[in-house]
Simulated assay, not measured.
Amino acid sequence: MPERHQAITLQRGWSPEYYLKKAEDNGPHTLRFFKKLMDSKLVIDQSYTSCTGLLRLMDAYGCVRMEAACKRGLRGHKFSYTAIKTILDNKMDLLEEESIKEFRIPAHNNLRGPESYN
């Protein structure tokens, strides 16, 4: 990175530790999402603008909704500002998680077992 760009980065206080600390203060899902976002970029400096945007979303929508949106966002495969913004704008973070239903055939006398096929 050019020297002037490095100076701006230092002036703004952009560092992985800063963003991860802010995410950790919000919750574990937010922290995991920030880590995945940073890992998805070739150069970690490319993730700073997305992280700044996510912090603005946290201020706008609140910590609880941001944590729920990050939890939902971790189920996907795209880790970006846009993914979380879409979840928050469409209120998908407010939907209850669907429980996984287990379907079983009820036991009754009518079913034949393996001994019937000898």
Rank of each mutant, 00 (worst) to 15 (best):
T82Y: 04
T86H: 12
E98I: 15
R72M: 07
G76Q: 02
C51I: 01
E115L: 14
P16C: 12
A69M: 05
D39G: 12
R112W: 06
P2Q: 08
E97K: 01
T52H: 10
K35V: 14
I8R: 15
Q6N: 05
P106E: 03
S50G: 12
E98S: 13
I100G: 03
V64Q: 03
G113K: 15
H5Y: 07
G13D: 03
L74D: 05
R56D: 06
E98M: 13
H29L: 01
P106N: 11
K71D: 02
D25Q: 14
F103D: 07
F34W: 01
N110C: 11
P114S: 11
H108C: 13
A23L: 02
S15H: 03
I8S: 07
G73W: 01
V43L: 12
E115N: 12
K22H: 09
S99W: 04
A69G: 09
K71E: 04
I105A: 06
P114Q: 05
K78C: 06
Y18I: 08
R56P: 01
T30D: 00
N110T: 13
A83M: 12
L74P: 11
A23R: 00
R65N: 09
G27F: 04
K91E: 13
M1Y: 03
T86Y: 06
E102Q: 09
V43D: 03
L74A: 10
A7D: 02
C70T: 00
C63F: 07
L111R: 01
R75G: 04
R65L: 10
E24P: 05
K21D: 06
K36W: 02
L54T: 02
T86E: 03
P2E: 07
S15I: 07
Y81I: 15
S99H: 11
T30I: 00
R56E: 08
G13F: 08
L111W: 07
K36E: 03
V64L: 07
G76N: 02
L74E: 04
E24R: 10
Y61H: 14
K101T: 13
W14F: 14
S15D: 01
M92L: 06
P16W: 02
N109D: 13
F33W: 08
F33H: 01
H5G: 13
L94G: 10
K91I: 05
W14K: 03
I84V: 15
E96K: 15
Y18F: 12
R56Q: 05
K35G: 02
R104F: 10
L74M: 14
K91Y: 09
P28R: 11
N118H: 09
T9Q: 11
A60G: 03
I44F: 07
K41D: 01
R112I: 12
R112H: 11
L55M: 15
K101H: 11
C63H: 09
T82M: 10
T52Q: 12
Q6W: 06
N109A: 13
